[in-house]
C-alpha cells in the first residue's frame, strides 16, 4: 500500500548515486533486492515507479526486482534453512532464537547508467 512512497525513495537514492562525472546521464536500470518477508507488492511497485520516474534521470528505466527467500540460521545448532511457510522454529533442534540471513531486504543493490553512444 505504500509502494508510491517506496518508489519515490528509490528515485531519490538512485539519483543521488549517479557519479559526478556522469551527471546528466540517464539511468537504464535499477537493481533492487526485495525479501519475501517485506510488505511490498512487486507489480504495484513497478506501476508506481513508472509513474513517479517521469521527468527524472530514471524515466524509462527498468526496475529489476530480485526476490530474496527467507533464510534463517539457528543460533543454537547452526542449522541454516529456507523458511518456506511462516514457521520460525529450527527443524533440527526446535530452537527459536534465529538470525534471518535474508528475507527482510528492501535494498537498492546497484544502478546501471546508459553509456553515451
Amino acid at each position: 500500500m505504500h509502494e508510491m512512497g517506496i518508489a519515490l525513495e528509490i528515485i531519490d537514492i538512485a539519483t543521488a548515486s549517479i557519479p559526478a562525472d556522469l551527471a546528466g546521464s540517464k539511468v537504464a536500470r535499477v537493481n533492487l533486492a526485495v525479501g519475501q518477508l517485506s510488505a511490498i507488492v512487486p507489480d504495484s511497485l513497478q506501476f508506481c515507479f513508472s509513474i513517479v520516474s517521469k521527468d527524472t534521470a530514471l524515466e524509462g528505466a527498468e526496475l529489476v526486482i530480485d526476490t530474496r527467500p527467507v533464510v534463517a540460521v539457528c543460533k543454537a545448532c547452526g542449522h541454516r534453512w529456507t523458511v518456506g511457510k511462516p514457521v520460525f522454529t529450527c527443524p533440527v533442534c526446535e530452537g527459536s532464537d534465529l538470525t534471518l540471513e535474508s528475507g527482510r531486504e528492501l535494498d537498492i543493490t546497484s544502478i546501471e547508467i546508459a553509456e553515451e553512444a
Binding site: 537514492i13 538512485a14 548515486s17 528492501l106 535494498d107 537498492i108 544502478i111 546501471e112 547508467i113
Partner: peptide, 17 residues
C-alpha cells in the same frame, strides 16, 4: 563495466531515510 551500461554498486536500504 557491462555492455552498453555502467553499473554502479549502491547497496542502500530504500528506507534508509
Amino acid at each position: 563495466q557491462r555492455s552498453g551500461t555502467r553499473e554502479i554498486q549502491v547497496v542502500r536500504r530504500v528506507l534508509d531515510a
